[in-house]
Amino acid sequence: MRILVTGSAGFIGFHLARRLLSEGHAVTGFDGFSDYYDVGLKRARHAILATMPGFAAVEARLETPGTLPEAMARAEPEIVVHLAAQAGVRHSLENPGAYVEANLVGMGNLLEAVRAHPVRHLLFASTSSAYGGDARVPFRETDRAVSPLTLYAASKLAGEAMAHAYSHLFGIPTTAFRFFTVYCPWGRPDMALFLFTKKILAGEPIEVFAGGAAERDFTYVDDLVEAIRRLADRPPIDASVGEADTLSPVAPYRLVNIGGGRPVRLDAMIDALEGALGRRAERLLKPLPPGDVARTHASTELLRALIGGAPETPLETGIPAFVAWYRDYYRT
């Protein structure tokens, strides 16, 4: 197949593009190489993709008019996986304009590009943060998400609504997925696992929010990529798969959680990291920051109905894999 992946220099986009290329698909990677975090890490990811047959890179920003339609006209993709976004819950408190530009303007430009160049299936990344202040767990896709706690979450909810409208108006088969705390080798430096590893190796204390009692539904990237890959073959054009389905009654549109459904306490994650590093962490206990939630917990009922499984890699496997990559990449 011909597939366009936006955000291909990001950690999820990189892993997905590498998987698709290994299967023999032609992949166009579209990325603007924003400086939100280390651009060198992003370029190192793209350098690996560039060694694989079938990869073509486009360096441009979604917010720039005309760039994506030009790329799609050349690549003629059958599938688009939209992963590019301004990420980070806490950063949205400091730089809200970046979220408006990337996640709202960028999303609008993407939808217009897909409208002009129709595809078999559009898939795009939303976030578990969309559930916001909803304290009911597990988070079910059929629950109304109406209480976002940050602009990041609000921008992703808006993206879901925009995509549904375009799906209804122009018949674009669209699957939105809400990710749950993805981690992996080549991960994002602003996320907890990366930050903790860096500080523990440097002998610096780590900040542990909510006294370590906060819980996250950690998802290893290989499981996430497997789910996206299988969902790509399931455009929302068939009949409903049951009561848990979010198939729209007025559009070929579906919303799916991608998480394992097994929340882990933050202090347990740190214990596993200490074991993989062979070092103890000095823990500074802090209250939960604004915009953070005490727990995330994915319902996996719909994902299992659609693809026959859900993420299963335990932290005891995933964290050592991350640590091994980190030590090799940073020579620590």
Rank of each mutant, 00 (worst) to 15 (best):
G212M: 04
R304Y: 06
E78R: 15
T246D: 10
R254V: 09
D223H: 14
L247W: 09
D222M: 04
R45T: 01
T6C: 09
D222Y: 05
G278Q: 11
V58F: 07
D223P: 14
A281D: 06
T219N: 04
L20A: 01
R234F: 01
F11H: 05
S299D: 14
A161K: 15
R234C: 14
F180D: 05
T150Q: 13
Y166W: 15
E76M: 14
D222H: 03
R188D: 00
I258W: 07
L315I: 02
V81G: 09
D238S: 13
P77E: 00
Y220K: 04
R144W: 10
P263E: 04
V89C: 11
P138L: 01
A153L: 06
G171D: 15
A176H: 06
A154I: 10
L306G: 15
P287R: 05
A145E: 02
I237Y: 00
A158N: 15
L247R: 01
V264F: 07
V105C: 00
A98R: 09
A47I: 00
S129T: 12
T332R: 12
A44L: 01
D38A: 00
H164D: 10
A75I: 08
R61S: 08
G10S: 06
R90F: 11
E101H: 11
H25E: 13
E94M: 08
E226C: 07
A202P: 12
G132N: 09
G203S: 10
L16E: 00
L157K: 14
F196A: 03
E204G: 11
T175D: 05
R18N: 11
P289L: 04
Y37S: 03
D217F: 07
T51G: 04
D292G: 11
T28S: 04
P65C: 11
L157S: 14
R178Y: 06
D35Q: 05
A113G: 08
I172C: 06
D143T: 07
L231G: 05
E101Q: 14
P148C: 13
T175E: 04
A145F: 07
V81K: 08
P77T: 10
E160L: 11
G159N: 09
R144A: 08
M52I: 08
P287G: 01
D238H: 14
E316F: 08
I200K: 04
V100A: 07
T313L: 06
E78K: 15
V146S: 10
V225H: 10
A47V: 03
Y166C: 15
A113D: 02
A73P: 12
V264R: 08
P173Y: 08
R18K: 15
G308W: 12
M52F: 04
M191Y: 06
T51C: 01
L83Y: 13
E76Y: 13
W325H: 02
L169G: 01
Y99S: 10
E101D: 12
M269V: 03
S129R: 15
G88I: 08
